[in-house]
Write a protein that binds this DNA or RNA. Structure first.
Lengths: 246, 246
DNA sequence: CAGTGGTCTAGACCACATA
DNA sequence: ATGTGGTCTAGACCACTGT
């Protein structure tokens, strides 16, 4: 007698989906302090009996909680409640136009440089090219409602985006364009606090002594680096935010 | 005739686990450029036939790829390849002692302040208390191999950790202690670049003009704020790093 | 309506941990 | 030896989408 489903459950029904029901029930108990950190949770069989669902279903619920960092599961040993301390928060890599628009503000971009250059040693290394090889270089300042928010200093590997220099970057951001023509498969970044360079300070209209939040990001294709960008944000007007709530 | 399992598969066997096999196969194809962004993937039934596994198994593989941000699935419509652009990288919230030790370096903490104070208006607001209510306040500088790495200025809600002031913070970090006595269920942070305060500069032994990376973190219990910390890092010696690889 | 994803169940085999 | 998590299959019902 397979699948004697429940008749779509009741009306108030917060969680008519069984695995969600199980997950939320366990989550609530964890939050309430039952199962203190480090203690063993009921076994899958126990939960199967308690909730009247199949093992795959409680497995799904437990896996969700595990991926949230709330549980640790050890084969042969059992399932344990954890301290949610090593949980990771997420930091998005977003297109700045999207970011500004999503705040309901106006985005404007001013292009200060857009040309081909021979690669310096450092840029060449980062892009996996030889020194002196031609690379595309753009410097663009992004405004949010007339406030300078970001100075984007970017080098692009010509192989990945041959038509890059022909794009009107006052209308479409390099990030947006590059995503379309050369989707990345790998990305790395560093975030640091530093003083702006002379040109950056001038373009952003800030004092050279004002600290900036600098994000350096390198994205790569499946086989080669696409672009390296140095994004300088005045510390006074830009903050990264994140949150974790299991 | 249920479960005619494969005899544990061959030796080289990178992915004897069926859902991993399916996931990796599809991942490789996505990476190779088959299924360009926006295009429709084969349906679950197709994949069932192609890989000779059950539908739950391909479902699991597809869900993994979806959670990685590589696929989008729309009920009734199909499964589609996406641009992996809105993918999030993770930024860990780690205990600084752990962080330094994991680099194989030595950690030392110097306690500069450890007392009870009446809450300022700002601190009171952050911790959900009334102005003037007693709060615990610690200021600790963390060294990595004799280099000042972080100035930790922290306020703690006494209700959550009554014995806080009795802890020897040269031996155990506030983060570590608080995780033990008051695990958090919610956390938020901001990252900004700014100049250090006078005291911070002095304690870190840096110039007041040297920009710092400042992480402000608020953690909460299930019902009330536990602690708010301002972590100041000299920009020259501290960077946050992250990477994304699907 | 046919096709697609979303989910469930029941039973099963395996790898691993602990006693 | 027993119990635990990890996974698989086969078949099924449902909700949704597009023609």
């Amino acid at each position: 007698m397979p699948t004697h489903r429940k008749p779509a459950a009741g009306p108030d029904d917060s969680g008519s989906v069984p695995y969600v029901r199980v997950r939320e029930a366990l989550f609530a108990e964890l939050k309430r302090g039952r199962y203190p950190p480090g203690s063993r949770m009921p076994s899958e069989s126990d939960l199967v009996a308690r909730f009247g669902v199949s093992r795959m279903t409680v497995g799904r619920a437990l896996r969700d909680l595990q991926e949230s960092g709330l549980l640790e599961r050890r084969q042969g040993a059992g399932t344990f409640a954890t301290q949610p301390h090593k949980v990771a928060s997420t930091l998005r890599i977003r297109d700045i136009h999207e970011e500004i628009s999503s705040r309901g503000h106006r985005h404007r971009a001013v292009v200060h440089l857009c040309r081909e250059e021979p690669a310096s040693r450092e840029v060449a290394t980062r892009l996996g090219l030889v020194k002196g090889a031609p690379v595309f270089h753009t410097v663009i300042v992004h405004f949010e409602n007339e406030t300078a928010l970001q100075c984007e200093d970017r080098f692009v590997n010509p192989v990945c985006a041959p038509a890059y220099l022909g794009v009107d970057f006052s209308a479409v951001t390099p990030t947006h364009y590059l995503l379309a023509v050369a989707p990345f498969w790998k990305a790395g970044y560093t975030i640091e606090a530093a003083l702006p360079g002379a040109r950056e300070a001038r373009l952003l209209g800030i004092d050279r002594a004002q600290p900036c939040l600098i994000v350096t990001r390198l994205t790569e294709n499946r086989s080669m680096p696409i672009t390296v960008a140095r994004l300088t944000h005045p510390g006074l007007v830009y903050q990264l935010e994140g949150a974790f709530e299991p």
